[in-house]
Simulated scan of single mutants.
Amino acid sequence: MNKLALSAAVAALALSPVLSQAAHADDTTAPTSTSNNWQDNFFVAGQLGQTQYRTDSLSHDNGVFQNVRFGWRWNGLVGPEIGYVYLGRPKDAANDAQLSVKPRAATVGVNAKYNFYQNWFVTGHAGYMRSQTYLTAISGDTSSRAKTTNNGLYAGLGVGYDVTNNFSVGVNYDNYRVQVGNNTSVAHDRTNVAAYSASAEYRF
């Protein structure tokens, strides 16, 4: 939980200059903050990278990370976002037994973008996620499958470059607080999932 709290705190710090900048939007030089048309502040972003599970129960704790987000920023600075994230499929194998976990989640939260030097910028986002986790256990010739739905939180930071007024690239670190199980058919557990990714964003 400390890693998520740290990410959220740093994301909040990233938002503070953005909120200050928003009060003086007419004085900005960032290429994404020049439009006065609210419809021009929509964006779609995609991320691709790798996850790492902060747990001792999975020996193969990494996987493919995929994230798609759609959102809006007031004056190109701060606003809401929704998204869908895939957190890979880590596995644990011992003797003849194998366990695989495949979480994915819908997300809703707040995002911000701040140009600190010419076309260079920092981003931050945080919010709530609703995850579905598919679990598969195989032991010899016997297999069992389960699906659980849980709540969680996420937060992340990034740095990037505006290639044009409408297109940006960047690198990112995100942390997802994932819960698994329902204390009935599947034991309840939670873990932090770190995601390292490259991103591309297009602004309408």
Rank of each mutant, 00 (worst) to 15 (best):
A195F: 09
N2Q: 13
V10T: 12
V169D: 02
S33T: 15
V186T: 12
A106K: 10
A112M: 01
E81T: 10
S197G: 11
A93T: 14
H60R: 13
N192S: 15
D27Y: 05
G152Y: 00
N172C: 02
L77C: 08
F43Q: 04
Y173E: 08
G46N: 03
K147G: 09
K3V: 15
G140T: 00
R73K: 09
N95S: 10
E81R: 11
N2C: 03
V122C: 06
M129A: 06
D189I: 01
A93K: 08
E201G: 08
A30F: 05
K113M: 11
H188G: 11
S131V: 07
S143F: 09
D92M: 00
P103W: 00
Y202G: 02
W38G: 08
T32H: 10
K113E: 11
N175T: 11
I82N: 09
G88P: 06
T191V: 15
S144Y: 11
S144K: 14
A22F: 07
N119Y: 04
Q50E: 11
F167S: 07
V163M: 08
V85F: 04
D61F: 04
V44T: 11
V186C: 06
Q21L: 01
A12T: 15
S16G: 07
R54P: 05
K113T: 14
N62D: 13
L157W: 05
L135M: 10
D141I: 12
V64L: 15
V122H: 05
V186H: 09
A12K: 00
V122T: 13
V101E: 04
M1Y: 12
A194R: 06
G46H: 02
Q52R: 12
R145W: 02
G63K: 02
T133D: 02
L48R: 09
N183G: 09
T164S: 13
Y86M: 14
A11Q: 09
N119L: 01
P80M: 01
V180D: 06
D96S: 12
A93C: 11
T148E: 03
Q98Y: 00
Y202F: 10
G46L: 01
V163S: 05
K3R: 10
R54G: 08
E201W: 00
G160R: 01
H188F: 12
V163L: 10
V108R: 05
D27V: 03
W74I: 00
A198S: 08
N151G: 15
R177T: 06
N75Q: 13
N182H: 04
A187M: 00
N150L: 05
G124A: 08
Q21E: 14
V180S: 05
T133E: 01
V44G: 13
R69T: 15
